[in-house]
């Protein structure tokens, strides 16, 4: 199985960010109604079939959630909450399939200040650097006999401290002024369709919630 959750850039930024906000809102507005959650899952899966790939990564989390909500409210409650969690996770995964710069540009388009939006993109980049660092530290520690885990963590702590200093240094060296490189793509028909369906879902769940 392939656990890659890297971005592929198959979807457009602005519509995706908006849709994800609407989808998330609909789940909350409808107070975790299983119908809404199921529709969100369906939409996400239709939108980008391979975002299901990332689901196994979250299995422990989903499992924990399912069990704890079972003890809190019984089988039905547990099922409903698990479905809602999966729906929220999937719509989150949709965002992670955007190139970081496009995500940042979309954020700044919907009104987030540009330098904040850049920090988000930078955080994603740092996340990948640290992920690679951690992987290498663990690989390096594998060659050693005793306490490989502890040693890997030690190396990783030192490396990540050095990295964060270096990152600040780099931003200084490169004259960082808070602008985001890159352009926004033009949305395609599929992007608009997805946006429209998420708006419709939000409208229906709001109406439904108000009627009850």
């Amino acid at each position: 199985m392939n656990f890659e959750i890297g971005w592929t850039g198959g979807v457009e930024g602005r519509t995706t960010v908006l849709s994800v906000i609407f989808l998330t809102l609909s789940i909350y507005v409808s107070s975790f109604s299983p119908v809404t959650s199921a529709i969100v899952v369906l939409l996400c899966v239709l939108r980008k079939a391979d975002c299901l790939n990332a689901l196994p990564l979250f299995l422990p989390f989903i499992g924990f959630f399912a069990v704890s909500s079972f003890f809190l409210g019984g089988l039905y409650h547990s099922g409903v909450m698990t479905l809602a969690t999966i729906a929220l996770l999937l719509s989150g995964v949709l965002v992670s399939s955007l190139p970081p710069s496009e995500f940042a540009l979309s954020l700044s388009w919907i009104g987030v200040p540009e330098s904040w939006a850049f920090q988000v993109a930078l955080a994603l980049r740092v996340f990948y650097v640290l992920k690679e660092d951690a992987r290498h530290c663990f690989e390096a520690a594998k060659f050693e006999g005793k306490f490989p885990y502890l040693r890997a963590v030690k190396a990783f702590v030192s490396v990540s401290i050095l990295r964060s200093v270096a990152l600040a240094e780099t931003l200084y060296c490169r004259g960082y002024s808070g602008k985001i490189p890159g352009v926004l793509k033009k949305p395609k028909v599929a992007d608009y369709l997805f946006l429209v369906s998420s708006v419709l879902l939000l409208v229906f769940s709001t109406v439904w919630a108000l009627n009850i």
Binding site: W7, P99, P100, S101, A121, L122, L124, R125, Y128, V129, R163, A166, L167, E169, T170, L171, C173, R174, G175, Y176, S177, K179, I180, P181, G182
Partner: peptide, 24 residues
Amino acid sequence: TQHPEEQIVCSTVLEEVAFSLVQR
């Protein structure tokens, strides 16, 4: 500076090379 890994702040090569220009 010395370590290339630490110099990179963007996620694609093109954005990376254009970064300083965009900042200006």
